[in-house]
Amino acid sequence: MVMYKLGQYVYQESPVHSRDPRVKLIAVIALSIMILQLNMAGLLVVSVVALVVSLLARLPLSAVLRSVHPVLSFFIFLFLVYIFFTPGRPIPPFPFGPVQISYEGLNLGILQLWRFFLLIVAASILTMTTTQSEITMGLERLLRPIRITGISSHDIAMLIALALRFMPTLLDEMNSLRQAQLARGANFNPRRLNQKIRAISYLAVPLAVKVFRRSDELIDAMQARGYQQGHRTYLRELVLSRWDYCLIIVIISVLIVVIV
């Protein structure tokens, strides 16, 4: 449940919230490409941009920073790998026996860590200022050109929407399964690995069965409501304002400048 709460939509009236989801999606994609290309100075600029956008969106900064929490241990591991295993000029008390830290390693470690941090922050700002359905609709519209491959972007959007819709339902289902098993004396934290694996299968197998049963009913219900693959219409149609167009042009120009 903690994972699910992170990066969750925060309702606010703000110029960031009210932007067309396509603009925000393009911005995040462009920003991600740029982040991987930029040096320290560039990252500093991106960080300031991220800070300004968060403030404009009236997001609590602590919540934005907390979004990194689940991957913190991964970050530390990555940092250690970079500082210990990058060859270069050693920093004074080192080399300490076979262990050494180089200036280059420290530099690279900080740079990479900063990049990952910004990627996650960018994605969090997107999900905190855009509802899931807006993101889905934005993706649907951005993906329309894939029609030429024979795949309908409506189908992909439906797929994403259903996955998001049933996530909390399945979490609930898993919790009730776990409780039912605990009530009958199951142990979900055994010491031995093979018992751990078995404990997982006790949850996974019945959960999978339930998912299949649910999806059978879901298919009937969707058909009964006239669902057919391919084109459909929505409650809201996305319309790009002049502002949105300007922003897209700015974002793409910056992206081109950075890459070239």
Partner: peptide, 25 residues
């Protein structure tokens, strides 16, 4: 009822059927 709801919000779920009929927004 839980397995018939496809929308991410109440109003989007109700819009699912009319959307399938291809009606304008």
């Amino acid at each position: 009822a839980d397995n018939q709801i496809v929308g991410m919000s109440v109003e989007e779920d109700v819009a699912f059927g009319p959307g399938n009929l291809g009606l304008p927004s």
